[in-house]
């Protein structure tokens, strides 16, 4: 079945030297994909798309803000899948990749929060509003930081990774609840929530850059995940034999 395929696949690439080489081989392609999609997306976002009739040019912030927000959430789902694999089948590569997703996810949350705040200044007149989406993104950032803090607090990295994997899965249950409760809270306290898009839906001419940028940040996440995992496994296995043969230490 599908689980078996995943399991076998992970075991096959699960040997550190294999995984290390795989990261080395794929990372440049993923970065290439990112730069290509981002170049198209940024060109369209800044030069091709006409200004919005309500928000003028400030809506162009959307093309970094929204993909970052989506990736901060999608990244968490990826981490949760890896954490599940790590806990059920005790696969070391999955543990490491789940842990290395956290700093990247946190970086995307920071992009989302900072651009949201900069966008809020001309639109709402304040740098920060207790908008439901911004607030739950802030909580998500703290969850990411908690995962990173928990992992780094353990001497034994494998133990730390497993325990942080439990936290990731607990967070997976929690995040939708937090999101829902914060939405409930803002509607209760603010009367009507401030919306980015007003009542109108997006015009189709505004869509292509958003699609390009969304794909671009997916490439970015994957590339950064491989780069970081490669380093982490090298760090943990620094005294093992394969490192001597594969990590270019002798060169």
């Amino acid at each position: 079945m599908i689980w078996k395929t995943i399991k076998v696949g992970f075991h096959r690439l699960g040997s550190p030297p294999n995984f290390y080489r795989l990261c080395q081989r794929f990372s440049p392609w993923l970065w290439g994909g990112f730069f290509l999609c981002a170049a198209v997306g940024l060109y369209q976002a800044l030069y091709v798309v006409p200004p919005d009739y309500q928000q003028g040019d400030s809506f162009r912030i959307l093309y970094v803000h929204v993909p970052a927000a989506w990736q901060a959430m999608a990244g968490y789902v990826v981490m949760a899948i890896l954490a599940f694999i790590a806990l059920v089948w005790r696969i070391r590569i999955a543990e490491i990749m789940a842990m290395m997703g956290a700093p990247i996810g946190a970086a995307f949350s920071v992009i989302c929060l900072a651009t949201g705040s900069i966008w809020g200044r001309p639109m709402w007149g304040t740098w920060w509003a207790w908008d439901a989406r911004l607030t739950s993104m802030l909580v998500l950032l703290f969850i990411y930081l908690g995962i990173m803090g928990l992992y780094s607090a353990f001497e034994d990295k494998r133990k730390g990774a497993r325990i942080a994997c439990i936290l990731i899965l607990v967070g997976l249950v929690n995040i939708p609840i937090i999101h829902f409760s914060v939405e409930w809270w803002t509607t209760l306290h603010q009367g009507s929530t401030i919306r980015f898009f007003g009542e109108s839906t997006m015009h189709y001419s505004m869509m292509p850059p958003l699609v390009w940028m969304t794909i671009a940040v997916k490439f970015l996440f994957a590339a950064a995940l491989l780069d970081r995992s490669r380093n982490e496994i090298l760090d943990q296995d620094r005294r093992r034999r394969w490192v001597l043969e594969h990590a270019g230490v002798n060169r």
Binding site: F142, G146, I178
Partner: peptide, 21 residues
Amino acid sequence: LTLGTNRGSVLLSILVFPMVV
């Protein structure tokens, strides 16, 4: 979760905060 760490208390508060929102 923080039992195996030796600087648990600050970390503990950071872990609790999102979950009790």
